[in-house]
Design a protein around this nucleic acid. Structure first.
Length: 530
RNA sequence: GAGCCCGUAGCUCAGUUGGCAGAGCAUCUGACUUUUAAUCAGAGGGUCGAAGGUUCGAAUCCUUCCGGGCUCACCA
């Protein structure tokens, strides 16, 4: 079976989606010369995990499609940057300046960060930087540019022509209040520059204009073309599908009705609605919808501090139609699942590979992983050996696999780095060191000297015996108390790893130094005062 | 009201063309000359929400029902 046949038979959802796209175009290249995938972005906020999810998933479908067909593809990341600013975001500078521009298109508002041509341009740049950091292949599209350049003009005129039909399509899903003032066209006031939400009083199809009442009450006539008017979002979406010839766009289940309306409008405009895919929303650990304003759930940045992007992509790949909880605890699991899919890939047949998530995550060519070490082991390791940096973990890993190094095992190296972050943020703050009493002090001094005197090639077992011997030489009620003291004084926790293996892992000289610092009271400063 | 998702071990969930019910954690037992919680080995634990149907065979497909959750109707 060829790759293409195998892909056509593959049940993995990106292939199923790609099949629908292939059927849509009837196996032939569309007139525009390519199959168009689109993802939308509202630039009044910064890119977030939902943006990421949509682009990753769309990219997976796009790549699956490229495996099924030779028809070229493009992905537009479309920014609705002509949208009027409704509210001043509280996470940006120059708040008072921005408040003077409320109601104006984002691309007509100065950049509060003073680094770009406009606020819209600034956020667009943030979007692109965000997407670039993951290496996504896309073409950025600006709504402002599309409107002003006339690219949307032919379809805008059609919207005017089929005004009533479009109105009738949208009205049923609106509330009563909204129905009264609703207009698909949002004229941009020539006087104030505001995007107006105002009824259309008259329209002239042949001239391509609408008449409305401007903010100061004067009757104003404006062309619907060339950027003089924007469209209300649902109609805007459908117009864009029609004008650009969008073949595929996914959206959240909260938009189901809007997609339905959009499809109707698209047909009214003479277009063919894109193939859609409705994905489920993300929930937090309590099963509540994740929203930026509530700040629940998890940000992309948080995830990437503790785990590599591939694990987040895996999360996005898995069950997109299922409402999944997105919170901290799911990270380690997704890392380990990613690693095991990666390991499994090596021994799979060609068509099994197509259903392996790593095939989709890495666009058909996943990296080879030679040293298999789960993330949970690394997390344990990081906390057991007090890993302030990944080199400590590597100290252990190179003993385990002498030929391995950060250079030969980049995946493992990244994981080690992430495990250190995990240790620093979650384990270390819980540590509480205490000062030794006189008996313990003497025993620790004894241990430090004993460790220095031991033959350098002694193994973990031998060191363990020596630790034991030192304990016996001092008046502990029972040896249990000696080990407990070691953990509490040196590691800041009431239990810990076997001392012999810990010392080998942490380093003999380093352990001696650690003991000396403990004796000097230097570890007490690390105590968490909270 | 309309629509979507979920219900599988104590917990969180896998289960990919229907073919002997799985993982992680938790629990229990044992090993490793310290510890209930480094690590390792092993064990117990499920009427797959319920009832019908299709099938030689259903966690999986169809129907109905029960239970839980979410979304839409202001903005995009």
């Amino acid at each position: 079976m060829s790759d293409r046949e195998a892909a056509a038979a593959c049940k993995a959802w990106p292939f199923q989606e790609a099949q629908r796209v292939l059927q849509r175009i009837g196996g032939k290249c569309p007139e525009k010369g390519y199959v168009l995938f689109e993802t939308g972005y509202g630039p009044s906020g910064l890119p977030h995990i939902g943006t990421f999810a949509e682009v990753v998933r769309t990219t997976m479908v796009r790549h699956a499609f490229a495996t099924l067909s030779d028809v070229p593809t493009r992905l537009f990341a479309f920014s609705d940057d002509m949208d009027g600013l409704r509210k001043v975001p509280d996470n940006v500078p120059n708040q008072s300046m921005l408040s003077e521009y409320l109601g104006k298109p984002l691309t007509a508002i100065p950049d509060p960060f003073e680094t770009h041509e406009s606020f819209g341009h600034h956020n667009n740049a943030r979007l692109c930087a965000f997407l670039d950091s993951f290496g996504f292949d896309y073409t950025f599209q600006s709504a402002t540019e599309c409107y002003k350049s006339g690219r949307f003009d032919p379809v805008l005129r059609k919207v005017l022509e089929h005004y009533d039909a479009i109105l009738n399509a949208v009205l049923p899903i609106l509330g009563k209040e909204r129905q009264a003032t609703y207009s698909p066209f949002l004229p941009i006031s020539p006087k104030t520059g505001h995007v107006l939400q105002t009824p259309v009083i008259a329209r002239d199809v042949s001239a391509g204009t609408i008449t409305f009442e401007d903010e100061d009450g004067t009757k104003t006539e404006l062309p619907v073309t060339a950027g003089h008017c924007k469209l209300q979002w649902r109609v805007d979406w459908a117009m864009r599908w029609t004008a650009l010839g969008v073949d595929y766009e996914m959206s959240g289940k909260d938009l189901i009705d809007s997609v339905r309306i959009g499809n109707q409008i698209c047909r009214i405009l003479g277009g063919t609605p894109p193939e859609g895919f409705t994905y489920e929303l993300f929930l937090d650990e309590n099963g509540e919808k994740i929203s930026k304003s509530k700040g629940n759930g998890l940000s992309v940045e948080e995830w990437l501090r503790y785990a590599p992007p591939e694990s987040l992509k895996l999360f996005m790949y898995q069950s997109p139609r299922k409402a999944k909880r997105l919170y901290f605890d799911v990270i380690p699991r997704n890392v380990d699942d990613y690693l095991s899919f990666l390991a499994k890939y090596e021994e799979q047949s060609a068509d099994e590979r197509l259903a392996n998530p790593v095939w989709h995550i890495h666009e058909g060519s996943p990296p080879r992983e030679t040293l298999h070490m789960t993330y949970s082991i690394l997390l344990n390791l990081a906390s057991a050996c007090h890993a302030e940096e990944s080199s400590v973990i590597w100290g252990y890993l190179s003993r385990y696999a002498p030929t391995a190094s950060p250079e030969t095992e980049p995946i493992l190296d990244a994981l080690a780095q992430h495990a250190v972050h995990y240790y620093q943020d979650f384990i270390k703050p819980t540590k509480r060191y205490r000062a030794p009493n006189d008996v313990e002090r003497a025993a620790l001094e004894d241990l430090a000297q004993a460790l220095e005197a031991l033959p350098t090639n002694l193994d973990a077992e031998g060191i363990q015996t020596e630790v034991y011997e030192v304990g016996k030489r001092h008046p502990f009620p029972e040896l249990k108390a000696w080990f407990k003291a070691l953990y509490e004084i040196l590691l800041g926790q009431s239990q810990g790893p076997r001392m012999g293996s810990f010392i080998v892992l942490y380093g003999r000289a380093e352990t001696v130094a650690l003991i000396r610092r403990a004796l000097a009271g230097a570890l007490l400063g690390k105590e968490d005062v909270s």
